[in-house]
Design a protein around this nucleic acid. Structure first.
Ligand SMILES: [Mn+2]
Ligand SMILES: [Mn+2]
Ligand SMILES: [Mn+2]
Ligand SMILES: [Mn+2]
Lengths: 217, 217
DNA sequence: GCATTTTTTTAGGTTTGTCTAAAAATATAT
DNA sequence: ATATATTTTTAGACAAACCTAAAAAAATGC
């Protein structure tokens, strides 16, 4: 595997993430990377020449097999460092991302694989996202309804089936959004309501609400 | 402390190291960094504007107080990472430098200080070089060159001044590493070579090699 | 002291990654 | 279908960090 610049790696990773939610275009990628559409076009030409993305002017773009492989390697590094920071250095889980954003670009293969081994081959980062193994293989994440989440097992909110204003208002009042990490602390038999831990706070969720929330585990 | 580029940091560190052995000039620094004199001049102007070096055209240069502080911070990061790689990830002591060369540029203050704490505030890196503390303070080490060690007096290897692969290969062949305990058994007047006792074995050390080995007594 | 050599700087150019402004292509709405 | 709006690309510029070749300054040798 060749060596790529920090910038190239950040583009590849961003395309990979956007690809998960449909087609990737110039403006979306520019927004994601906080850069300008013109810069994206420039980079897409370069990444196309390096055979990391399929790209034709005006036709959008997506990663090649090689590009996907690279993306998974960068994500592997990122999430392993996040795990290290949280587990070993006792960073809180909302502080790890920024630092991992830099560490992920240190490219020594031996460093990454030894780190993985040292950490005991963890399968999920502190946000609950799966860590690709040395071959770039990712454990398929299971998505379960909040009503089915086990006690004291972290889940990441990834989908809400009702997206009415009323629903979203209630969610934001309880500090819950897409990507929010939560844990069920208590499940009351009487009304199936839940007491959950979210962002260092405790909230109560009715069964009706819980039925509409899905989490990654 | 502001943020500096990888390039600026490498220059600052190189000046610091060269400053230890006399005055620093354009050609020496270019050689040290494997770059061209013209590039050095460009960078010196920039570092002068950032008040990290004292510099006037044709008059050589040296670090300002601020520059020295930055150099010690970079060296702190470098040596802490080297310690981490050797101690936790079981890298051999001749593999750590290259990777630390990249890791040293990740600038999060919190990362460095937490890493220091996690490692138990080590005072020496795997090559026996002292690790600056969070205030940039370095422990003064009392050590003597192997050429000056008395006969039959034990010494602990704590530093090698040449850290090239060739040197490290020779040392490991002779079973000598950081922390190795040894004793000089005989000193030959003809070529100043030494016969030493190390790990129940006898080895011969040339004067050239001995000059590069330092021991704690 | 003056000529020669060495060191250092300047001048001008390249690559990478960014930007703004304008032009071109595509999508949308009546 | 055509006008309008949006998206994307091109053109041209800029800063960082490097380069080569030439000029200038400093050091050295006689
Ligand atoms: Mn990054
Ligand atoms: Mn994460
Ligand atoms: Mn470095
Ligand atoms: Mn070292």
């Amino acid at each position: 595997m060749l060596n790529y610049s920090t910038s190239e790696e950040n583009y590849i990773k961003a395309i990979f993430h956007l690809q998960g939610e449909g087609s990737v275009n110039t403006n979306k990628l520019a927004a994601e990377l906080k850069t300008r559409p013109a810069s994206v076009t420039d980079m897409m030409k370069k990444l196309r020449d390096k055979k990391l993305v399929h790209y034709q002017a005006y036709k959008g773009f997506r990663l090649t097999t090689e590009g996907k492989k690279l993306a998974l390697l960068i994500i592997r590094r990122h999430r392993l460092w996040e795990f290290f920071l949280a587990e070993k250095l006792r960073f809180s889980w909302d502080e790890v991302h920024e630092v991992a954003e830099d560490l992920e670009h240190v490219s020594s293969k031996k460093l990454v694989d030894k780190l993985d081994e040292y950490l005991g081959f963890p399968r999920f980062d502190p946000h609950g996202d799966p860590i690709p193994d040395a071959n770039g293989k990712i454990e398929p994440t299971k998505q379960v309804c909040l009503t089915d989440l086990a006690l004291n097992k972290p889940g990441i909110v990834c989908y809400v089936s009702d997206q009415s204003t009323e629903m979203l208002e209630l969610l934001s009042h309880k500090n819950i959004g897409m990507g929010t990490r939560l844990e069920i602390k208590k499940r009351f038999q009487f009304d199936q309501s839940l007491e959950i831990r979210v962002k260092q706070q405790t909230e109560t969720i009715s069964e009706v609400l819980a039925r509409n929330i899905y989490v990654k585990i």
